[in-house]
Design a protein around this nucleic acid. Structure first.
Length: 121
RNA sequence: AAAGCAGGCCGCCUUAUCGCUUCGCCCUAGGCGAAGAGGAAAGUCCGGGCACCAUAGGGAAGCAUAGCGGUUAACAACCGUCGUCCGUCAUUGACGGAUAGGACAAGUGCAGCAGAAAGUAUGUACAGGUAAGGCUGUAGUGAAACCAGGUAAACUCUAUGCGGUGAAAUGCCACGUAAACCUGUGUUCGAGGGUUCCCGCCCGAUACAGGAGGGUAGGCAGAUUGAAUAUGUUGGUAACGGCAUAUCUAGAUAAAUGAUAAGGCCCAAUUUAAUUUGGGAACAGAACCCGGCUUACAGGCCUGCUUUUUAU
């Protein structure tokens, strides 16, 4: 099992992100929204996490939520990587206005990733 | 011991598992080791370093500072001291606190109550005086009544200082494209541009301005060895400086420094104590680097002074 989340699996390209917001498909389950597109050729599945400044004014809170999101993704990403060969570009949006509990975040993350796997195979 | 005031310091810890960033070593796509947020990293309010610009010169404007002396790379910061004001003890001093503190004899403006009148002065009563007259004195109101009046965190004046931009700066490498097209202007008789404004100066030709459209948006340097930190010693009332020894202490870039579990510890609620439940602690996240200022801050510790109580 590979639970690592190194730099090259982080979505950084401005172009790809703009394309995601313009054309990406999405589904949500409170408090997360997942936006996704098939990845360009020869690139691994990449993910990125966003917490709007509007909801959380403090940088400390935003950082903490992003870290928890990243942790939840890191531990559950084998769900989408394991068998099928398809790669994705992903963005996770946190749209609640309250601080999350990690256990709930983890549950939501798992269901979202399962849904993504089931709908694209 | 308690309370108050002033100053300074700390601001969760340990272990396990799974991860992230940088560096080093094995020797390669993995493993091992080391290091990894703050006192304010915040606000971006001052001052520097550093870099670039087509010289940055004069005048005006603007902004800042304002007893005196010192510290500093520099400052609007800091230290000392004098003056002024306030408080306490007390009696002409001591202690503590505050203080943007140059000029009102250039001009302009402003001034509650009281008072006839508050800046173009001059009413009443009494006394004196004159050719005549607030011409002179006293009384009365007020902090102040003509005195070169008071007031500049009022305009203003004086002295001193200030070129601009700001790491998205800047340099190099790689990749890609369009030195193409349309319109206008222009090449020493100067289009256009830089300097806040004026003058002056400077740049300037395969150029400049506009239109429509195309490409890139990666890497390295800048960038963490520095007005550095710690200890000792030494000069100075102090701010701060000298010398010696030791140390290397985040370097990310859609932005690492974390997540989970257990225990300790702290806080809140419950309770006779125990226990149980909740929170992880307050304020808050480096972004070129320093020196300050301002603002936010749960809880704890230390030092000094004052008061009260207890003991001697």
């Amino acid at each position: 099992m590979n639970f690592r989340f190194p730099k090259h699996e982080k979505l950084k390209s401005t172009k790809t992100i703009e394309r995601l917001f313009a054309q990406g498909k999405s589904f949500s389950k409170f408090p997360l929204k997942l936006i996704f597109l098939p990845q360009e050729l020869e690139k691994p599945t990449q993910a990125s996490f966003a917490v709007p400044k509007r909801s959380f004014k403090s940088a400390v809170d935003r950082n903490r939520i992003k870290r928890q999101l990243r942790e939840a993704y890191r531990l559950h990403k084998p769900l989408i990587i394991a068998n099928n060969g398809k790669n994705f570009a992903l963005i996770f949006l946190y749209f609640s206005k309250d601080k999350p509990k990690y256990a709930e975040l983890e549950k939501v993350m798992a269901t979202l990733l399962k849904k993504l796997r089931d709908e694209t195979t």
